[in-house]
Design a binder for these strands. Structure first.
Length: 418
RNA sequence: CGGGGAGUAGCGCAGUUGGCUUAGCGCGCAACGUUCGGGACGUUGAGGUCGCGGGUUCAACCCCCGCCUCCCCGACCA
């Protein structure tokens, strides 16, 4: 991709009314743009990150035996009355009458819809278990939005739902999802703290939250500075309580942001909506459900929050919008330098890498500072001084030093360090 | 929904105790020239219903009333 043909509106000004680093950088690096409070456009660079995060989630969910589908966002309110959540979620639900006078809402979550779907097609124990998931936009009428895409009214969520014959099956599925979540966050370079949590409006008994410590957090966790033990804030585990694991140190309280939440729902929805199956004895039983969410768009903010420096974002390579950025700086020999950039562009693409070439006619300072800001993991700088000596510069965004490499040795070097 | 802050050019801001403001500055944008490895410099230029609606006044961006929007803290939630 050539920068001049693309759309990356960067800014050096810190946007008004922003405090969180991730909020500032996601705006300055041209990832997202606010339309109104809690409602964001994903610009090309932000969309690329989003897609990469989604791909990681898809791979891990598929590997864990879940199947992707896509449910509607537009729901008849009638469906929500079956579980009473038209009332319990009333405050966050965006409701309205359509032109036919029907009461409708935009889906804030999808337990009712998926349960309604599954009960229509699954009648026998032979068809269970089944786990379905989607990556989709949710709508929640937040009274108070926060930190840009961290807490938005329209946001992207991965939500999965499991249906089992019994508790044992649910626990198995739950454990599988738990493991998949650990894999997912690890691949995104996020250290998660997993805590037992309240089920809230979801219902059910057991649930776990996947948290990442960050100043943009809305919740608190306690962490042991000595052994790394962590947990939710409650009773004996409050700050100052001695670590229940190593006893060496007192626990420290930290704010954390919730990125994922998994629930053992049990029969709350299957009973209310009569999602039943026939067992081998010909007896009707309610399906045993679990649900598993990840705030996909929120993950972007968390990654930026954890991976940045004074100059900008430092994308972990698995989620970076591009793998390599080529920066020809121009000069007397700019024709030959641009040709070299084009050559690298083709060679790197042939290796399956996503490549951005900053072909803009901008000052050196602006190009290099923009490169730092948008944070592509690998950068190839073609400057006239080195070019005259048949060399180019390769720099990792997360390294302080750059490497001088022979013009013809670039591909080998990239393959070595990428 | 309670408490605080803020709306003036695409972005970031200044301003007037009401009138020399034809509303400025920085960034960005356009053109030309000089530069050319770390957000270069100069000259010229385009760009604004001063959030919206009323009111007071000879005169309102400025004062009064009402409303809208955005941000932060809290409550609530995923």
């Amino acid at each position: 991709m050539y920068w001049s043909k693309y759309f990356i509106p960067t800014s050096k000004e810190i946007p008004i009314g922003t405090e969180a680093v991730s909020h500032q950088l996601s705006l300055r690096a041209g990832l997202v743009h606010m339309l109104t409070s809690g409602v964001y456009s994903y610009l090309p660079l932000g969309l690329r990150v989003l897609k990469r995060i989604e791909d990681i989630i898809r791979e891990e969910m598929n590997a864990a035996g879940a199947t992707e589908l896509l449910l509607p966002s537009l729901h008849p309110l009638e469906l929500w009355k079956q579980t009473g959540r038209d009332q319990t979620l009333k405050e966050v639900m965006i409701q309205f009458k359509d032109n036919r006078g029907r009461d409708m809402c935009l889906g804030p979550t999808h337990e009712e819809v998926i349960t309604d779907l599954v009960k229509g097609f699954i009648q026998s124990y032979r068809q269970l278990p089944v786990t379905l998931y989607q990556i989709q936009t949710k709508f929640r009428d937040e009274m108070r939005t926060r930190f840009g895409i961290v807490r938005a009214c329209e946001f992207i969520m991965k939500d999965a739902y499991s249906f089992d014959r019994d508790e044992e099956g649910l626990k198995k599925n739950y454990a599988r999802m738990y493991q998949a979540y650990q894999n997912i966050f690890k691949r995104m370079a996020l250290d998660v703290i997993i805590i037992e949590a309240d089920s809230g409006a979801m219902g059910g008994k057991i649930s776990h939250e996947f948290m990442v410590t960050a100043p943009i957090g809305e919740d608190a966790v306690v962490v042991c500075p000595s052994c790394g033990f962590s947990g939710g804030v409650s009773g004996a585990q409050d700050e100052g309580g001695s670590c229940p694991s190593c006893k060496n140190e007192k626990l420290k309280k930290q704010v954390a942001i919730e990125l994922g939440h998994i629930f053992q729902l049990g029969t709350k929805y299957s009973l209310a909506q009569q999602a039943q199956y026939l067992d081998e004895n010909g007896k009707l039983n309610p399906m045993i459900m679990g649900c598993y969410g990840i705030g996909v768009s929120r993950v972007i903010a968390a990654i930026i929050e954890k991976h940045n420096d004074a100059k900008g974002i430092i994308w972990p390579k698995e989620v970076a919008p591009f793998d390599v950025e080529i920066v020809p700086l121009g000069g007397d020999d700019s024709g030959a330098m641009n040709a070299l950039a084009q050559r690298y562009y083709q060679e790197l693409q042939a290796q399956g890498l996503e490549v951005l070439v900053d072909d803009r006619e901008e000052s050196v300072g602006r190009k290099l500072n923009d490169a730092d800001l948008i944070g592509i993991p690998l950068r190839i700088v073609i400057g006239k001084r080195n070019f005259a000596e048949h060399k180019v510069e390769i720099k990792k965004r997360n390294a302080s030093e750059s490497l001088l490499v022979d013009i013809d040795g670039v591909m080998a070097k990239i393959a070595e360090i990428k």
